[in-house]
Design a protein around this nucleic acid. Sequence first.
RNA 1: UGCCCCAUAGUCUAAUGGUAGGACAACUGCCUCUGGAGCAGCUGGUUGAGGUUCGAAUCCUUGUGGGGCAGCCA
Length: 557
Amino acid sequence: MTQQEYVNTNFIEDIIIEDRESGKHPSIHTRFPPEPNGYLHIGHAKSICLNFGLAQKYNGLCNLRMDDTNPSKEDEEYVQSIINDIKWLGFDWDERFFFASDYFEELYKYACQLIEKGLAYVCELTPEEVRKSRGTLTESGTNSPFRNRTAQENLAIFHRMRAGEYPEGSKTLRVKIDMTSPNINMRDPIIYRISYATHHKTGNTWCIYPMYDYAHCISDALEHITHSICTLEFEDHRPLYDWFVNQFTDLPKPRQIEFARLNITYTVMSKRKLLELVKGNYVNGWDDPRMPTLCGMRRRGYTPQAIRNFAAQIGVAKFNGISDLELLEHFVREDLNKKATRVNVVLNPLKVTIENFPEDEVLWLDAENNPEDETAGIRQIPFSKHILIEQDDFSENPPPKYFRLSPSKEIRLKHAFYITCKEVIKNSDNTVVEVICTYDPESKGGWAKDGRKVLGTSHWVSEKEAIPIEVRQYTKLFLDKEPENVVPGTDYKDGINKDSLAIMNNALAEPSVAKAAAGQAFQFLRQGYYVADIDTTESKPIFNLTVKLKDGWTKKK
RNA sequence: UGCCCCAUAGUCUAAUGGUAGGACAACUGCCUCUGGAGCAGCUGGUUGAGGUUCGAAUCCUUGUGGGGCAGCCA
């Protein structure tokens, strides 16, 4: 945790600081409570960094708790991926790994207490009837005809609900608050429903399951959470959260605080839409490098440090805004610039023949691995008569301010020699197929003896030693800056970028690249940051574009 | 036409009644064996109207705009 990650305080920290100084909470305790019904995404990362980060900064603790109160949606597969992703991000919960389902027995006990106090009742209205009697946003609801059963009767039926004597949907346990409340969450909310779905953790032990509003706050209290941080849509639930917590004198009273969830330009963040992209094969799985999931970003080559720095920079507030994707990419570049090994890779090769270089000679030249990190050392790259450069690095009729190779112009080959273009060979289509150059033997290593300068430096590979690699060029998955904000009548999927993945099969890399390990970060010189894909092998190296280098030239054009 | 919340440069965010600042983006130079990185500079902001105050981005009233809420989801 670097210091720069926390330069400013946000409104939640202000509350924490106040609670420490007043003695209300000498130490703080937060939690990250995902529902194991999907993969974590960058939006969750904001919450993870917030909750775990707050605990670190203020010498508190942060628990990991699976919010698994709905067996029909949750699965062990997601539990594992969540654990994996949080660890990858760099956070740890020690032994404090819990499930809401750990508390089912206690939750049941507290529900019985509510019944005994006359504050909860078994309701037999159908879902449709419940909906109707709840009222609307502008009209108050009406009391359930089952509202005035005796505590004794309610308790007996509730026990039988647990015993599995009633079909799904036939009965619920409701809390007795106020059907006329302007806050719909307070209109006798359901706290238990019957479900015979198998729970990923408790199997078929239970057939009644607590609802979020009831289970979450009590779970927080049982874990002695001091600050229960959630997103804005739960704001209206806070009165209910407080209501429950205040019914039980033996429980501590955690405080719910809401903050704005993360939105990023050119990105969809809802679990439903991400699932749709996967199921509809718009992407190749949850870990597709175009996905904003943490596993997708990992495969894309984004680093945990970059994501953490991003989370720190965007801050925490109650304003529901949309952050620029460019900011995230900035932190990815910043981190990778320090870490990535530089290599020569030519994506679209153009043959260059050095006419004054001996036919069979191979010269091994020194190349630095990372100019930003001296400890990264050097490697050797082969130079020969037949090399390849990027097609974009040659122009027969160059535009003004073109620094690259063109007829009679001289450039430098990175770490190698100065070369001068002597002749252009074209095929019948009039496309350039080869460039004949001469090299200056006195410029070995990239410096001319006489001190003359060249404007451009190109990356290159030696034809014979080069290895073919597959390069997956990823760009934005959505064309629209705000893909979730579509005009009525159209679908966000209409905005999918059909060209978000381009597979480059002609790419050639310097030989050192063959040894790349999956997940290893590279900078393909002058092009971008790339990561060896998890499918990479020595016989078929595969790389994903993480993010392009900033490019002042194409911007100028 | 109910209830709750929000409003500071293009974007995100600080300023806690006392000089409106940072990051990204953009732009202009410098530098450079990556048109990368780095360095320097510059442009640009308090939603409108009232009020309180010596002084308001901040407090109050009100308008406007935006978001959320009617699952036996979380």
